[in-house]
Amino acid sequence: MNCFYSIKDERRVEIKIRRSTFICSMKYVENVDEAKAFISSVSSEHKNANHNCWAYIVGDKAEMFHSSDQGEPAGTAGKPMLNALQSYSMTSIAAVVTRYFGGVKLGVRGLIEAYGEAVKNAIGMEKLRKLVKTKEYTINLPYAFHDSFIHQLKNFPGEVTDTRYFDIVSLDFAAEDHAASELEKMLDSCQSAGKLTFIQREMEDK
């Protein structure tokens, strides 16, 4: 199964290379219109910069993407930015790299490396978020069965998103959609044996 990643909060990182300043701004976007709006916003903010180059990828399977060198030599900015995003299997993402020229030319290779590095630095600021459809289950069980049950849950891709302790333990588990049917078989078996009760609802992690 192909997995894709994005970010939660907007990111911004600045690097300096041979007197030029490169500022990478990055944001989660859901569609092309949101990507274009973000690009326009950053470009307006840095309207006095020499260049505001950009790249975006959207779509559940990262099938829609575009980039622009915005005045830099062809293939030296937008494409390496897009390549950086794709190398991390990203989608629902827009990136703008703003350049303030410092008076020293970097050459074709230098520009490619600088724009790619700016994007990679922004990606590396925090862990990426895995984008995957999930089903969330609320599971109620006695304390005596809790440790054993948690051990069984480790066999299924997903995460415990909340746990509440009352006279019983009530926990929420978000399972990746492709593993939901097998998880439900296990839950049904445990429920039939009187070990727990559960309910399920669909959600999507963004």
Rank of each mutant, 00 (worst) to 15 (best):
S6L: 01
A84L: 06
Y100I: 09
A122G: 10
L131H: 06
F173H: 01
A94W: 08
Y165W: 10
L183Y: 11
D177T: 07
N31G: 02
L106P: 03
F22Y: 14
A74S: 14
E63I: 03
N2G: 07
K135L: 07
G107I: 00
V132Q: 12
S170Y: 07
L85Q: 02
E126Y: 03
G59N: 04
A55F: 07
E14V: 11
D60V: 08
I93Y: 00
G75T: 10
E202N: 13
N50K: 10
K16M: 11
H178T: 05
F198Q: 04
R18N: 11
N31P: 03
R164H: 12
M203G: 12
R11M: 04
T134G: 03
S67M: 14
V32G: 06
T21Y: 14
E182D: 15
D147Y: 04
H151M: 10
I123P: 05
V32L: 01
I112Y: 02
M90W: 05
H51Y: 02
D162K: 15
A114V: 05
A114T: 04
S67N: 07
E45N: 07
K105Y: 05
T163V: 15
A179M: 06
I168Y: 13
S170V: 00
A35K: 09
D188E: 13
N48P: 02
G158W: 01
R164W: 09
S6E: 00
M64C: 15
Q200A: 15
M1P: 13
S43V: 02
N83M: 09
R99K: 08
Y137A: 00
Q86A: 05
G110K: 05
D60Q: 14
V13M: 05
K16Q: 13
R11Q: 08
S43I: 05
T134L: 10
K154C: 05
A180I: 10
K130R: 10
H151N: 10
F173C: 00
T21F: 14
S40V: 01
T98Y: 10
Q191W: 07
Y100E: 09
N121I: 04
H178Q: 01
G102F: 11
A95G: 03
K206I: 08
K16I: 14
V96G: 05
D172E: 14
V58H: 01
